[in-house]
Design a protein around this nucleic acid. Sequence first.
DNA 1: GTCTATATATTGATAGAC
DNA 2: GTCTATCAATATATAGAC
Lengths: 231, 231
Amino acid sequence: MPPKRQHKADAKAAAHPHAKPRPLTRIQREKQDLILEAALDVFSMHGFRGSTIDQIAEVAGMSKPNLLYYFPRKEEIHRRLMSALLDTWLAPLKEMDATGDPFPEIRSYIRRKLEMARDFPRESRLFANEMLQGAPRIIEMLEVDLRNLVDEKAQILLGWMDQGKLAHTDPYHLIFSIWATTQHYADFDVQVRAVLGKDRGGEGRFEDAARYLEQLFLFGLTPRSTAPRKS
Amino acid sequence: MPPKRQHKADAKAAAHPHAKPRPLTRIQREKQDLILEAALDVFSMHGFRGSTIDQIAEVAGMSKPNLLYYFPRKEEIHRRLMSALLDTWLAPLKEMDATGDPFPEIRSYIRRKLEMARDFPRESRLFANEMLQGAPRIIEMLEVDLRNLVDEKAQILLGWMDQGKLAHTDPYHLIFSIWATTQHYADFDVQVRAVLGKDRGGEGRFEDAARYLEQLFLFGLTPRSTAPRKS
DNA sequence: GTCTATATATTGATAGAC
DNA sequence: GTCTATCAATATATAGAC
């Protein structure tokens, strides 16, 4: 078994483990953003292993060595995208406020998530891709940060249920169902468009989805003493 | 630009475009199944481009040339998996019966989908992977077969709504929300487990999900004359 | 900072011995 | 049918000229 070749960047980091990164110039930041933008395009469609630096460089409109001048390794580009993503991803749920009333809070949470699916579909797909692969690069953040956040919000939901303001149900699966239904419009966009066709599949589909989901969750989660009908 | 090398299989097909494939022996079928099984493992996690023949061969417990003896090309393995998948995928929806009552029908549709997420998570992820990539290999089937099927079932739902048996709402987005919430437990399994933790994330999570979804859709879709509460 | 050229590893696929 | 050896293409990454 031949020894793995050591990368230049690795050697550098090993020599100066605490070297301070000097601040970037405007040009550098712009180029990096250009690359990250292109990488988001490619990674979100093909996943990490399915994407090539060549593709990213082409989308970014530069040569491969030039791209590697700004990001020494493919992994580094992906890492940067992922860490930026997680913050944005948790933000909408963080806003759910215990002092508010459940239906306005849940309603606007759904709206925010649906807007993210509409305005940042690539980010959604990047996240989905990572999930499908078993989340190797973010599993720890899921088990700590995400879990703690969801635990906290589940407590809020339980509180509303105890106050009789919300139907008694499983708060974790409630949150899952909001994630699933909203992200679906980004992750399965091709399928949604194919089913709705050209006429009904335009931008109006997000409005239709918002109306439908609002109704589903409003009626579905309204507290009641007796079941409205036997199945 | 050097000319693309022609594959042996291509040349063979070109020479005998209508050659009948002779029936497979038992051994051949077993080996092929072994390979397809392994390929499902790999493709469902990493997508087509992110998967290698080496990986598949290793999971199948055979050498790469040996694998290529049964499937001359990587693409062929994937194609076989996808065409088998689509039938299985449409089956649960096909069962929804216009002569039944809406809630038993919808309820058992949800159950079937949830069972598929539990029992065939790799198939679900294979499908999700294809969606994320823009469904290049199945887009036509989505636009024809899937669309027609959903149109047909949407008509059934609309019929139930007109009879006052089901809340008036968008039948297409209703179907999307069932797909999304059930497949979520296969496609985002890592996340579900991470959030629920070891104690609540066992096999019981599918039972919990079934209970929650049943309640959500039952209450959410029950017809009513006035909205139960202003948001 | 950007380019051409190139080193090195991996991958899809084939040849040919057994 | 299975294996070792190997080819050709592609991919990550580096060297060095400008």
